Simulated assay, not measured.
Amino acid sequence: MNSRPLNSLGFAKPPSETRVVVAMSGGVDSSAVAAQLASEGYDVVGVTLQLYDHGAALAKKGACCAGRDIHDARRVAETMGFPHYVLDYENTFREAVIDEFADAYLAGATPVPCIRCNERVKFKDLLATAKDLDADCMATGHYIQRKTGAHGPELHQAADPARDQSYFLFSTTAEQLSYLRFPLGHLQSKAETRALAARFGLPVADKPDSQDICFVPDGNYAAVIEKLRPGAADPGEIVDLEGRVLGSHRGVIHYTIGQRKGLGIGGLGDPVYVVRLDPETRRVVVGPKEALSTRRVPLREINWLGDAPLDSRAEWAVSVKVRSTRPPREAILRPVSATEAEVELLNPEEGVSPGQACVFYDPGSSRVLGGGWIWRGR
């Protein structure tokens, strides 16, 4: 039996004999991770994915995985003295993330492409590349914790609730979790990360956080979708819950569930909200705020991280997030199969939208139990 103590990444060998691929976006978080591990003597290899066109990306501040950020990641690697590689994943990113994003909006859903990017690109293709490089593990700058439990590695929320990224990482599988490391998850604030970067003299120590979705300039989703899917912004009718026409709109893709402002149908007295999008009839359905309340949420494509199989029980008491910005709420999870279920919210939520994720948490701890994708149901 090997009695050597585990190093900080959980391996029973010296850091110098432990190769770790660090997924470097060019931001301060992943840069701090790479610098910290290099300073501890690990065999660090930095890898940055080019996900979309350099020219378009250079014009946008606060993006990631593009021209300026690739340059910044390279400078960090040079500062700390470890190798750095750039991989062209433009086609993969378009097929696995951008195309689905556009199609989901056209179908009246509200997609979360950052989750798909983690699931289909970073934790799939990049993780495979890390293994091809004979790395012992792959580290990222995500704010989430990996803890060892009685049945193996567990996913837990970050120590800093304000930075927690568990909503965007629910689809991380148990197999991927065994290979991944998240060195920032235990930090109490983003200020600690910036201080770490400053201590190593990194040029990105004061770099602003990335904003919005990386391939959507200035948050203008509709413009991106119109470019990807010409004709997507065909006009249609705004109707109430009984189907009465209240006005016209300039394309379903310009609206989201729960939207109140910008409807252009004043003079109705009480405020109305977007309750449903019907892309087949090109109708935007509006109604009073109470019409947004949802108690039952159908889910599919569930990734379950609990110790026992999802469908080994008729129901699970969980806490759930139906939006990344909302706190977990008490709910009952009722499996339909190993990958489908219905969530019953003990207190109704407003603005639950198809295309969003519903993430499960253990009510008694910080543990993430997985999650699924919200859809309209049968």
Rank of each mutant, 00 (worst) to 15 (best):
G266K: 12
T294L: 10
V368H: 02
L155M: 14
V216W: 06
A174F: 01
R282F: 08
K131L: 10
G108Q: 10
V204H: 01
C214H: 02
I302M: 10
D240G: 06
L177I: 04
V121A: 04
A107L: 09
R19T: 11
L333I: 07
L180T: 06
D311W: 04
S248I: 10
Q165L: 08
D307V: 08
P354G: 11
G351Q: 01
P113H: 07
E290Q: 08
Y143C: 09
R313W: 05
D362H: 12
E237Y: 07
R282D: 14
G364Q: 12
L292P: 01
C117E: 00
A308S: 10
V343I: 15
S366K: 09
A338I: 03
E17S: 13
L246C: 10
N91L: 13
W304V: 01
L184C: 05
D218F: 13
A341I: 07
Y361F: 14
R116D: 02
N220P: 01
V20P: 06
A331W: 06
P5E: 07
G26T: 00
C114H: 00
E342M: 11
V33W: 03
V44Q: 08
A38I: 09
V274Y: 05
C65A: 15
G55H: 12
G306M: 04
I98W: 00
H54S: 13
V352T: 09
D72Q: 03
L333V: 02
V318M: 05
T48I: 06
T129S: 09
K190I: 07
Q356P: 01
A341Q: 11
V20W: 03
D164Y: 11
T281C: 06
V112D: 04
T18W: 07
P217W: 10
G46D: 12
T281I: 08
N220E: 15
S210P: 02
Q145C: 14
P161W: 09
R296G: 07
S31M: 08
G377S: 11
L9D: 02
C65P: 03
S319E: 13
V359N: 02
L49Q: 00
Q157V: 09
V224N: 03
G231C: 12
H151K: 09
P183K: 04
L292A: 03
D307I: 05
P235M: 13
D99V: 08
K122S: 00
L345T: 11
V359Y: 02
V112C: 03
R194I: 04
D206S: 14
H249S: 09
V28W: 00
R181H: 13
A291R: 03
G62W: 00
G67H: 11
T256L: 08
Y42T: 11
